[in-house]
Design a protein around this nucleic acid. Structure first.
Length: 496
RNA sequence: GGUUCCGUGGCCGAGAGGCUAGGCAGAGCUCUGCAAAAGCUCCCACAGCAGUUCGAAUCUGCUCGGAACCUCCA
């Protein structure tokens, strides 16, 4: 089996993944700014990294996954001049900023849980690391890459580049072009150059969120927190840094500059960026006003949606798309995902009950064995090729066909050997549950209840009381359960 | 304007020089009291034009169409 390859934004190519200190892997992902509800686009990014986290663990790596909560420093508007997003919302609602933070942090976590994204190992907040942010700012100043202007501290991009560092290398930008590109921006104010960015901002009188610093009362710049928290919990160098593509510039570019500026150490080995979720071909974003919120999806209340879709339907849909491709939201796509998801869950129930007893009388079907082995290796090769869940899922569905065929007797399970049976069962279960993170959404474990009712159903059938049979079936159907009459048994499934 | 990227069957969406992706929808068959489910079969697509090649959806060039970043965004 080929080794895991990941697409590194820094080098613009797929590279073999070799951790700095195996079996440990450090992964940092930029989390949400909690001034509002997360939308489905945000969810996509976190789900993509959840899948990466799960797969790395599946491969046996001990992953420390750090995902921050931004609760200060993220400004509205451009050029380091706007209001703080959290403070603005707090003012608007007449609440403490930390009440805003609490509300949307809780919302965020509950949504992540619904989508079955595993919680990160550490979920640090920016306000919890003010001291470290001040210290890092001081270090950068000591190294000559920052300057003070009226109580604010700015990163000096041209000094940084004069020292042979390349600001812009991650996003493929040339500083000269940046300057011309941003010439029409006003409000550069006290910055020496438009490409410089704030490490620490002096708080104006009205500014609510403020802390003491060597430069007077102020607050940290947005980019600084990630540099501080990633290095604090993962070390000056770590393996993976992730985030949405829209964070490449300026956020991640600034992070690199800050780390190099403070520690003279290149912080990240692999930069991974997820692509955007689109609606009618356009990026979903709060500012464009085209965002769909998770609860709008789950309740079907958004105007673009004709019905409600579950969290697992959403997850399944995401699995069908590679994380570096844009993914378009539509009713048709969601409907297709819903059916696919239910099929997989019905398969999971079947495969869990599937038993095997070695029967040497029955000749082994080498063709089936070879096909199953091929499918399984394709699933792993898909995942190893930069976490291509779409390929892996296609393989899973092919494996499901085999499983269904064994289940309904089209193929004889005893024509497999023990090893292939175990491979089929284990691969299916671990991909569905551990790697893909799909789970049964129908709350009740209907198993035992169904057993009783199916017995009644069976009797009615046996007595050719078809009126009652139809009635029972209609009842089941109204509860979203379909009864399946098979050659030698009766089974049930959730309606697709 | 600069920098990237994309255009795949009715829809969604992988792939990336020769090999059936997959899902949904549609058609047929098997099974069945009738269904449903499941299985099997069919639907052989790669924006257009020109080129490279024995061979191109995949490489090159141009044209058309769309997107992202350059400003807050996952």
């Amino acid at each position: 089996m080929q080794a895991l390859k990941v697409y590194n934004t820094l080098t613009r190519q797929k590279e073999t993944f070799t951790p700095l200190n195996p079996p440990y892997v450090g992964m940092y992902v930029c989390g949400p700014t909690v001034y509002n509800y997360v939308h489905l686009g945000n969810c996509r990014t976190f789900t993509s990294f959840d899948l990466i986290y799960r797969y790395l663990q599946h491969l046996g790596y001990k992953v420390r996954y750090v995902r921050n909560i931004t609760d200060v420093g993220h400004l509205v508007g451009d050029a380091d001049e706007g209001e703080d997003k959290i403070a603005k919302k707090a003012k608007l609602e007449n609440l403490e900023p930390m009440e805003i933070v609490q509300r949307y942090t809780l919302d965020f976590r509950s949504i992540m849980q619904l989508i079955n994204n595993l919680p990160p190992s550490i979920e640090p907040t920016a306000t919890g690391h003010i001291v470290e942010q001040i210290e890092m700012t001081q270090k950068i100043m000591q190294n000559g890459f920052a300057y003070e202007a009226k109580g604010s501290i700015y990163f000096d991009v041209s000094k940084y580049n004069e020292a042979n560092h390349e600001y812009g290398k991650l996003s493929g930008r040339v500083v000269d072009e940046l300057i011309s590109g941003s010439r029409d921006l006003d409000g550069q104010g006290e910055k020496q150059a438009p490409e410089d960015f704030a490490l620490w901002k002096k708080a104006s009188k009205e500014h609510i969120m403020r802390w003491n610093s060597p430069w007077g009362e102020g607050f940290p710049g947005w980019h600084l927190e990630c540099s501080v928290m990633s290095s604090k919990y993962l070390g000056l160098q770590f393996d993976i840094h992730g985030g949405g593509m829209d964070l490449k510039f300026p956020h991640h570019e600034c992070e690199i500059a800050q780390c190099v500026g403070a520690n003279d150490t290149e912080p990240v080995k692999y930069w991974l960026h997820t692509n955007m979720l689109t609606v009618n071909g356009t990026k979903m974003s709060k500012s464009l006003g085209n965002s769909i919120l998770p609860h709008e999806l789950f309740t079907g209340t958004h105007t673009l949606l004709t019905q409600a879709y579950s969290a697992m339907t959403l997850r399944f849909m995401m699995l069908q798309t590679h994380y570096r491709s844009t993914m378009d939201m539509s009713n048709d796509a969601l409907k297709a995902a819903q059916k696919g998801y239910k099929r997989v869950m019905n398969g999971l129930r079947i495969v869990k009950k599937m038993q095997y007893q070695e029967n040497l009388e029955i000749p082994k079907d080498e063709k089936q064995i070879a096909e199953i082995e091929k499918i399984v290796s394709e699933m792993y090769e898909g995942m190893n090729d930069d976490f291509n869940t779409a390929v892996a899922l296609a393989g899973l569905l092919n494996l499901l066909k085999k499983i269904n065929s064994f289940h309904n007797g089209v193929l004889n399970i005893n024509s497999l050997d023990q090893k292939t049976f175990d491979l089929t069962k284990n691969t299916f279960i671990s991909f569905v549950e551990d790697i893909f993170g799909l789970r049964e959404e129908n709350q009740a474990d209907l198993g035992e209840v169904m057993h009783v009712f199916l017995e009644i159903y069976r009797e009615a059938k046996h007595n050719k009381n078809f009126e009652q049979v139809d009635k029972l079936r209609a009842h089941f159907k109204s509860l979203g359960v379909v009864v399946k009459d098979m050659k030698d048994k009766i089974d049930w499934a959730f309606e697709e």
